[in-house]
Design a protein around this nucleic acid. Sequence first.
DNA 1: GTAGGGTTAG
Length: 760
Amino acid sequence: MTKQVLPLIEKIPQTILGFLESSPSYWSSSLSKTTQAHACILKSGAQNDGYISAKLIASYSNYSCFDDANLILQSIPDPNVYSFSSLIYALTKSKLYSQSLGVFSRMFSRGLIPDTHVLPNLFKVCAELSAFRAGKQIHCVACALGLDGDGFVQGSLFHMYMRCGKMGDARKLFDRMPERDVVTCSALLCGYARKGCLEEVVRVLSEMESSGIEPNVVSWNGILSGFNRSGCHKEAVVMFQKMHHQGFLPDEVAVSSVLPSVGDSGRLDIGRQIHGYVIKQGLLKDKCVISAMIDMYGKSGYVHGIIKLFEQFELMETGVCNACITGLSRNGLVDKALEMFKLFKEQKMELNVVSWTSIIAGCAQNGKDIEALELFREMQVAGVKPNRVTIPSMLPACGNIAALVHGRSAHGFAVRVHLLDDVHVGSALIDMYSKCGRINMSQVVFDMMPTKNLVCWNSLMSGYSMHGKAKEVMSIFESLVRTRLKPDFISFTSLLSACSQVGLTDEGWKYFGMMTEEYGIKPRLEHYSCMVSLLGRAGKLQEAYDLVRKMPLEPDSCVWGALLNSCRLQNNVDLAEIAAEKLFDLEPENPGSYVLLSNIYAAKGMWEEVDSIRNKMESLGMKKNPGCSWIQVKNKVYTLLAGDKSLPQIDQITEKMDEISKEMRKSGHLPNLDFALQDVDEQEQEQSLWGHSEKLAVVFGLLNTPEGTPLQVIKNLRICGDCHTVIKFISGYAGREIFVRDTNRFHHFKDGVCSCGDYW
DNA sequence: GTAGGGTTAG
């Protein structure tokens, strides 16, 4: 207090001064007292005094009146450290971390030196924001000021480094601490576990033992949850057993922490032991324990366990029901999950975001895409707001059936609720747009993402690859290499598949070599499939076959399938027979390889062989997978089966097809009967070609959308050559852009040409 | 005025 102010303060009534001097808990009794005091101070003219203003700021901040506090702070000509720190303290307490840091930087830039009271607050802020760099800078300031020996400063710094995952810095501090209690040790244990460092955890435990510090429940449980969170499932299980061995009785927290790891490491045996233990200890009343048990059985594929536990637990609890839904869907029992979900709704159970997201994800992952979208709508009607997990769970459903309208509206939602900085949301959007034929939108989403992880890059590359845009895939790969991220086996799958789409043999070999030599990634079966396909389609069938024989892995059906498909393109019967034999062995149930071989025979007019294959299929009770296509018209997805004569508009469709067929003949196009299967007369062959589902879908689209509207079709098999020719023609004749996605890639037809350049 | 543990959704 300066001398000039002193007489002013004397003008302030003692009660007000006393109020300001009192503890924060007293202030909280009434905000009006603060405003009273403020008025009184203004009247007395003492508002510029550092001490008085600081007290006033603290008092306002205590009521979260940060605007008032800030105004006072800004109006004092000469604020002191205490004025600033009281605001920083209150902001931090109210979790307004960025603002807190901002006030500090204002204070620091005024040349005010932080003390041992503000510093811990600042480190807490940095910890909460994971602002490691800022934290480190403030640490340096603390060192320069000689304040880093203070116990509070050290403690908060330690915590900050832990929260930022900087175990090295944390450990250095830990070693310099004069006294370590079990709390600090537990924190360190948990930090190492979160990093997955089993050795360090064991070392700290033995250090604790030698200095006479007993680990407590919290220490053990911190270790378990740390390993679980870092995906070190085996380590978590090991530590659980160690804990048990040392005579520590795991409580419900320990059990719920370790069970997810037990499930993920596939140790059903241990899971069942824990089940027994849980019953003995009477822990099966805890809802978390029950959910975790159900989750564990779900991950272990033990459906009976899920249902038994669920039925045993009479009280309906949301978490338990959610775990049950996920467990069933995970094991393919999505119908059962849907049934249960319906039951929950009828019983007016409280369903939360997790419940809805679980069932939506379950549907989307089990081929129930339309149901997933319907549930997504229903969830919003029920007043449950989708979140950052719901969106990436429902988007694959949009991609699967090219429901662009739904995907777009989910994108709009994500924008409105600020989810676009989430990498899961971003990569799901990239994937959805590319599967809906809008690769440009994938690029836009990608470009706008503030931070990108490898999944985002991979999604974009796989999108371009699906669209046959090899150049783009390669240039994205080059950009990826320039970041700090390392490409993984998925990145290379997209690269190689892109090369194979367009026949870039040299580049393919280059990347195939680079994968092992520069990145130490061993080629997997999918990489070999891509290479076989690349070589085979480029006409180098022998080279492809050599690769299959030389590969260090046992070739699977994908590899042989790639070879067989190349044989079809190259009309090579001999090699086709070899590949087909392998496929019949590997996948006796799959009609695809029989059909492919029969196609190859048919294309060469070898009708006897075609017949014998058909007989073989018949004797095995096998049917050709029916061709099936989807098209979205006015927000509704229509499914069209090959040769389906019961379609509602079949007459109009046939009429339109005749018209197109005539026009094609006029311009000199003849139907390509190589793709017809049956050894029947030409007219019938031609008719069967016109029954292909992709043609039905395109014509259906032509009839039901306004002129000029682009059409979007998905097919469950590869597009046939005749359909390819016809759809090319339609795109020019009807003046439509047509996107067809088959199991392999995208075909974008426009003005009579296809984006694949007829190489596929 | 710093400091520790749980289930179910991608």
